[in-house]
């Protein structure tokens, strides 16, 4: 064994506590730790998002290509990474990696796993948006004499861009929530922090409130940004 340990150690049987009222003082005391962890959730999510997108665009074009040597690998990628749990993918990379000579820090392994995973979903979002541009558009463009690439660049992609924002937004929100999984390979972010403080304070409800608040803020802001972006592409008004 490579000496790696899972992010969690449990005190079995749970805990009991007499006091049931919400302990606001405790919340205020540990809030700074959560704020720091929230930043780390943002960083992990953002890097994974960037990695996911940079995989997804080429993968979507490969998936749409007529060339089998491009199409089949892209198909396999999408099918495998959408067909298995993200947690398992993270475990294979982090715990299994050293066995095949890839030893990554938790943070790197986390970003890599999340990025590759969300990339497979984003591939389908992008492909769907490109396919949703009507055939008449391509035909009109080709009938003017534009070639395939010019048609893609000038006619299809500008329209697909607007159509892919919503589905990519859904992927992004899922990614932010999914980033909590990297706590299982001991990346110090929101879920990890919530778990650690729950173990040390026996105050699950307070820790849930704190972590939830940060997640809700991050997700609400992201949704807003996505909506704004979507509004910009609404030329059809």
């Amino acid at each position: 064994m490579s000496g790696r340990s899972a992010g969690f150690r449990f005190i079995p049987g749970g805990t009991t506590i007499e006091e049931t009222a919400v302990d606001y003082q405790l919340i205020i005391k540990v809030a700074p730790f959560f704020a720091k962890a929230a930043w780390s959730t943002v960083v992990v999510s953002f890097l994974s998002f960037a990695l996911g997108l940079s995989i997804a665009f080429p993968a979507a074009f490969c998936r749409l290509s007529q060339n089998r040597f491009l199409q089949i690998p892209a198909r396999v990628y999408v099918s495998v990474f959408r067909g298995t749990p993200c947690l398992i993918q993270l475990f294979v990379i982090y715990f299994g990696g050293p066995q095949i000579g890839i030893q990554l820090e938790p943070f790197m392994a986390g970003v890599l796993g999340l990025g590759i995973n969300i990339g497979s979903y984003m591939t389908e979002s992008i492909r769907g948006a490109i396919l949703a541009v009507s055939r008449g558009q391509t035909e009109a463009s080709r009938s003017l004499g534009l070639n395939k690439f010019q048609t893609m660049r000038k006619v299809v992609l500008p329209q697909a861009a607007g159509l892919m924002i919503s589905p990519l937004g859904v992927n992004t929100i899922a990614l932010i929530k999914g980033s909590s999984l990297v706590s299982a390979i001991s990346v110090l972010e929101l879920a990890y922090t919530a778990h650690r403080f729950t173990n040390s304070t026996y105050r699950p409800f307070e820790m849930f409130i704190l972590a939830s608040t940060f997640y809700l803020v991050i997700i609400t802001l992201t949704s807003k940004a996505i909506r704004n972006l979507n509004g910009r592409f609404a030329y059809e008004k």
């Binding site: 009507s134 008449g136 558009q137 035909e139 009109a140 463009s141 009938s143 006619v155 500008p158 329209q159 607007g162 030329y235 059809e236």
Partner: peptide, 11 residues
């Protein structure tokens, strides 16, 4: 070529 459904580029 002119099509039945126009196919103007909406963007």
């Amino acid at each position: 070529m002119v099509f039945q459904h126009f196919n103007l580029f909406p963007h």
